[in-house]
Amino acid sequence: MRATRQGDAVCAALTETDAFTSAQELHALLRSRGAGVGLTTVYRHLQVLVDRGEVDMIRRDDGETVYRRCATEAHHHHLVCRLCGRTVEIAGPEIEAWTAAIADAEGFVDVEHTVEIYGTCAGCAAASAAS
């Protein structure tokens, strides 16, 4: 896909947050800034970024697909706050070893996996306790 003003706007908006963001949220943000970007265009650009490995995509507990530009291209996992969406990239050597051992024991090869851990970040926990 060639570089476009809309694609640049999608990339820039994703870079501004450390939380996973839905296409609809991203579209609303861009529209509030006066960007003439359609929702279908947002989805199309997000899919290209996912295909290129520039953006991670996960499915939240409610089934909605959300996107995030990660700091590393290396394999990693995410710790995600259920309340504010703040996300921390985590390495998981124990997860990698466990996955390899289970796959080997069952005779599986070419194994891929994703692990997302959901909880409440310290800021949201403190705000909940204060209210």
Results as ranks from 00 to 15, higher is better:
Arg33Leu: 07
Gly63Tyr: 09
Ile117Cys: 12
Gly34Val: 02
Leu29Cys: 01
Ser32Leu: 06
Leu49Arg: 01
His113Val: 00
His75Cys: 07
Gly63Asn: 11
Glu73Asn: 08
Arg33Tyr: 01
Gln6Trp: 05
Arg5Ala: 15
Ala103Thr: 03
Gln24Glu: 14
Ala23Trp: 03
Gly53His: 07
Ala97Cys: 10
Ala28Ser: 11
Cys124Gly: 09
Arg44Thr: 15
Ala101His: 11
Val66Glu: 04
Phe20Ser: 03
Thr114Tyr: 03
Glu116Thr: 15
Asp104Val: 01
Leu83Gly: 00
Val109Glu: 12
Arg69Lys: 12
Tyr43Ala: 00
Leu83Met: 02
Ser22Thr: 15
Arg59Gly: 00
Ile102Glu: 11
Met1Tyr: 09
Glu16Asn: 05
Val48His: 12
Ala105Trp: 01
Cys121Asp: 10
Thr15Trp: 00
Thr87Asp: 06
Glu73Ala: 14
Leu79Ser: 12
Arg68Lys: 13
Cys81Val: 06
Thr99Asp: 02
Ala122Gln: 10
Asp51Arg: 14
Arg33Lys: 08
Gln6Asp: 14
Ala71Asn: 08
Arg5Lys: 12
Val55Lys: 01
Ala101Pro: 04
Val80Asp: 04
Ala74Asn: 09
Leu49Tyr: 10
Thr114Ala: 08
Ile95Cys: 00
Arg82Lys: 06
Val80Ser: 00
Gln24His: 07
Tyr43Phe: 14
Ser22Glu: 08
Leu26Ile: 04
His75Gly: 12
Thr99Trp: 02
Thr4Ser: 15
Ala130Cys: 08
Arg5Pro: 07
Val48Glu: 15
